[in-house]
């Protein structure tokens, strides 16, 4: 199997779907002539031409709405936000029009659209540029939210997202774009709402998604190596729909649960999972659910400060040790 980068997996998913369906097209800032601000759409302009791979002016509200209008009449747009931090000027389209027009019309319309791009802190971009929008988007019924953690999942999930008839928010991460993994050459799709056990273990359940899954796996490896703890890493893959049954099965087995995410801790996805786990697994838990998230501050610029704010494997290790009463 060829070894490819995360961004190449995304590129392959888009190209395959565009070859399959002429109604799929890609719009966004710098997606065409520049080959993508993060090179996700490299070569696509040459392959599909300027009708289907289209540079947009810096008008996130405008082109997010353009995508939605095209979807209203049946086209299947992929809208790239250079980062979801820039989607905030388009929130009325993203969180109001996208999830609600179908409902408000009594189901007369489908909105087959994918909004994709970077979510989460980059490299020292400071507070307004470092949004993790997972909680914000998952909050809203009518959206589906996908956050892959590896190239294999990214490709299969993006293909599913493009074929889905509902608006999908597809969250990527700058630091993941260069992750490499072997990905099959034959076509495959991954379903929504099915979490994946990225690492099995019986001592503690760690629930993660996207980039947070990468650090959860680092922490699990470290604890295995250093402490002989066997941590089970449940990669949610999609936040909406949420595979709660997979989480519950794992927590019932391990008796412990830790959530890991890059976003703010208050009203976060981890907070939601903690609430659901205590509702469903109260008698199975031997410790309160422990949540790892960014510190509850706007993202600072300075490198050591950002590193202090954003969760890393060290903090996940500490959280697991706390959750399992581990005595070094």
């Amino acid at each position: 199997m060829p070894l490819i980068q995360f961004r190449e997996a995304l590129n392959q998913a888009m190209c395959e779907e565009m070859q399959r369906d002429p109604e799929v097209f890609l719009i966004g800032e710098e997606v065409a002539e520049y080959d993508g601000a993060y090179k996700v759409s490299r070569g696509m302009l040459a392959k599909f031409g300027p009708q289907r791979v289209v540079d947009m002016p810096i008008s996130e509200c405008g082109f997010a709405g353009l995508g939605l209008g095209a979807a209203l009449v049946g086209l299947r747009p992929i809208v790239e936000f250079m980062t979801f931090s820039f989607s905030l000027v388009a929130l009325d389209q993203l969180l109001n029009n996208a999830p609600k027009i179908r409902y408000m019309s009594g189901g007369q319309f489908k909105l087959p659209i994918v909004f994709r791009g970077i979510s989460g802190p980059g490299r020292q971009l400071a507070a307004t540029h470092a949004w993790s929008v997972d909680a914000l988007c998952t909050h809203v019924p009518g959206l589906k939210v996908v956050a892959p953690s590896c190239p294999y999942d990214a490709k299969g999930l993006l293909k599913t997202a493009i074929r889905d008839d509902d608006p999908v928010v597809f969250l990527e991460s700058e630091s993941m774009y260069t992750l490499r993994q072997e990905v099959p050459e034959q076509e495959y799709l991954l379903p929504f709402g099915q979490a994946d056990i990225k690492r099995p273990g019986g001592d503690c359940t760690v629930v993660a998604w996207g980039q947070s899954c990468v650090i959860a796996l680092e922490a699990a490896e470290q604890l295995h190596r250093e402490n002989g703890l066997e941590v089970e890493v449940v990669d949610l893959r999609t936040l909406r729909p949420l595979d709660l049954s997979r989480i519950i099965q794992s927590v019932r087995r391990t008796g412990y649960c830790v959530t890991v995410e890059e976003g703010y801790p208050t009203c976060s996805v981890g907070a939601e999972i903690a609430a659901l786990v205590q509702e469903k697994c109260f008698d199975d838990l031997d410790h309160a659910v422990v949540r790892v998230a960014s510190l509850d501050v706007p993202m600072p610029y300075s490198k050591p400060l950002q590193e202090h704010v954003v969760p890393d494997a060290r903090r996940v290790v500490q959280a697991i040790q706390q959750a399992t009463y581990f005595q070094g």
């Binding site: 709405g65 209203l72 109001n96």
Partner: peptide, 23 residues
């Protein structure tokens, strides 16, 4: 196609519908 109650929010949708017509 509605019926939209956030002032101005449907105007980009109209542009997308026209985009589809041209596409």
């Amino acid at each position: 196609f509605g019926g939209h109650a956030i002032v101005g929010a449907h105007i980009p949708l109209a542009v997308g519908m026209a985009w589809a017509v041209k596409y």
